[in-house]
Write a protein that binds this DNA or RNA. Structure first.
Length: 480
RNA sequence: GUCCCCAUCGUCUAGUGGUUAGGACACCGGCCUUUCAAGCCGGCGACACGGGUUCGAGUCCCGUUGGGGAUGCCA
């Protein structure tokens, strides 16, 4: 057990999205790899935007992804007293001061500076004004050092930092009394003994100011690791409107947590030429030295492929359970968890990229009715239930009728097909199989014909073949 | 605008001064084959540009271009 401690600190202002999920994943993986501790902390200091539903969604998303935490969830809002105490302390020590500048005043001065071609940081008007607690509505600002480097050695980006003089005294407490992010995150990370702050690169520019807070508190710095951002397929920043970013949405589309996790971990991190990682392999191989510095695009095609790889060797129970949410889209009622379902799933493991596809493919084998005259079957019927195939299907039907239920096996079906083919000038098996496939499934696509017929079952196949024969005879008559 | 970061096939990436620049997804072709997949084999395809440093640069330095982030009493 090492004493490495990481944390995931989302703000509950929306669903768990791709970027957050990956940050959580990296923190979790780093902690697990090094035998450390992973802490979950909800950053709900923005009371106006934080919601309980969002918090629940965040937690549900993490659990679904298999990212378990060792401590928490802690809520920043529960730590308000501590935050207040730190601010008071800083005030008492003169490391922070009260500022009575209003938003409008600040905005005006900022614009003036910008228009004059200067660069804006807080101009320090209240810095030495010595405003007391009774100065009326005020914010609290951290008093930054006049000069000196606020630097650190980023575990991903390397030596980083900014001179204190370039930053300006930022606000750490709102006029309403609530502490601000920069303050709370530092206090909480310090109190919780976080040793490695792993977060999105969008926080890289915030780090110098936060370091100033650590220094003002006399607290030791944690290690910082900023991981590159994820951008959308367009190359632009992920947009909630255009890009699929909600973990919940991926789940609904039928991606497995294993698949999504694997895809996510490879976005910005690599381990040689390895592509596929189980949860255990992520823990075994993940480390910060494999994290790159360039932001990357999320590629849905890669996700589909990775997910398919995981579907291939997922336990049957996992698939059955995950499929429950998908059935309504494809069948009137969910199938029993029996041998038949198990076989249908196994037959489609290599054909489905998502659970949604899996359900769709299985539905073809499991549904009770096949209507050859339906719109959906029209094309396949026209193409494969041709008059020429009639004698083939008739012979096959006759031979099949003689098999009883116990004989309805792959080897028996195979011999029947071969015998029929032999009787008809050794036609290619495909000449028989394809019409039969359409007859029993209503479409041109399915697993191997024998396996397909076994899942569908003798009692369903025979009547369906009869119907197909009827259809073909009608066509023969129409043809004259 | 200012500050900061980034830059290898379309995409994810390997690469730590000497490589025919490798792998994966996608795409294309072939094999297999009763369909669809899967699998196997092969192909297409990149060091953004310009200067340096060096015997030698994808690798180091500078600049340009491009992309991104930050610049909140959001996180």
């Amino acid at each position: 057990m090492s004493n490495i401690r990481t944390r995931f600190a989302p703000s509950p202002t929306g669903f768990l999205h791709l970027g957050s999920a990956r940050t959580a994943l990296f923190n979790w993986a780093y902690a697990r790899h090094h035998g450390g501790t992973f802490v979950l902390r909800i950053e709900d200091t923005d009371r106006e935007r934080s919601t309980a539903e969002s918090e629940a969604g965040l937690i549900e998303g993490l659990q679904w992804l298999g990212l378990d935490w060792d401590e928490g969830p802690f809520r920043q809002s529960d730590r308000a007293d501590r935050h207040t105490a730190v601010i008071e302390q800083l005030l008492a020590e003169g490391k922070a001061y009260r500022c009575v500048c209003t938003r409008d005043e600040l905005e005006d001065r900022k614009q003036a500076v910008l228009e004059a071609g200067g660069k804006w940081t807080y101009d320090g008007r209240c810095r030495d004004a010595g405003h007391g607690p009774d100065c009326g509505e005020h914010t609290v600002r951290l008093r930054l050092p006049e000069e000196g480097m606020l630097g650190w050695d980023d575990l991903v980006f390397g030596p980083s930092g900014q001179d204190a003089s370039e930053i300006g005294d930022k606000i750490i407490r709102r006029s309403g009394g609530d502490p601000l992010f920069h303050l709370t995150v530092v206090v909480d990370d310090f109190d919780m003994g976080i040793t490695h702050v792993i977060r999105g690169a969008d926080h890289h520019p915030n780090t110098p100011f936060q370091i100033a807070i650590y220094e003002a508190m006399g607290a030791p710095l944690p290690h910082f690791a900023h991981v590159p951002l994820i951008v959308g397929p367009s190359g632009k920043k992920l947009s909630k409107r255009r890009d699929p970013v909600s973990i919940e949405a991926f789940r609904e589309q039928g991606y497995l947590p294993e698949g999504l996790r694997n895809w996510l971990v490879r976005l910005g991190w690599s381990h040689g030429d390895d592509e596929l990682f189980s949860r255990e392999e992520i823990i075994e191989k993940f480390d910060l030295d494999g994290v790159g510095r360039a932001s990357g695009q999320a590629d849905p095609d890669k996700l589909a492929w990775v997910n398919q790889q995981h579907i291939k060797d997922a336990p049957l129970d996992t698939l059955m359970a995950g499929l429950e949410a998908q059935w309504p889209k494809h069948l009137d009622k969910a199938p029993e968890h029996d041998e038949r379902l198990a076989l249908a799933i196994d037959l489609n493991r290599e054909r489905a990229k998502t659970l949604d596809e899996m359900a769709s493919l299985c539905a073809v084998l499991l549904r009770d009715e096949v209507d050859l005259r339906s719109e959906a079957s029209a094309k396949a019927v026209k193409k494969h239930l041709k008059v020429a195939a009639l004698p083939l299907v008739e012979s096959l039907y006759a031979a099949l009728s003689k098999l009883d239920v116990e004989e309805w096996s792959e080897s028996q079906l195979e011999s029947v097909f071969e015998a029929v083919a032999a009787h008809h000038d050794n036609v290619k098996l495909g000449k028989i199989a394809q019409p039969v496939r359409v007859a029993v499934t209503g479409g041109p696509i399915s697993p191997g014909i024998y396996e397909t017929m076994i899942v569908i079952g003798r009692s369903r196949c025979l009547p369906r073949l009869e119907r197909a024969i009827e259809v073909m005879r009608e066509r023969a008559e129409q043809a004259g």
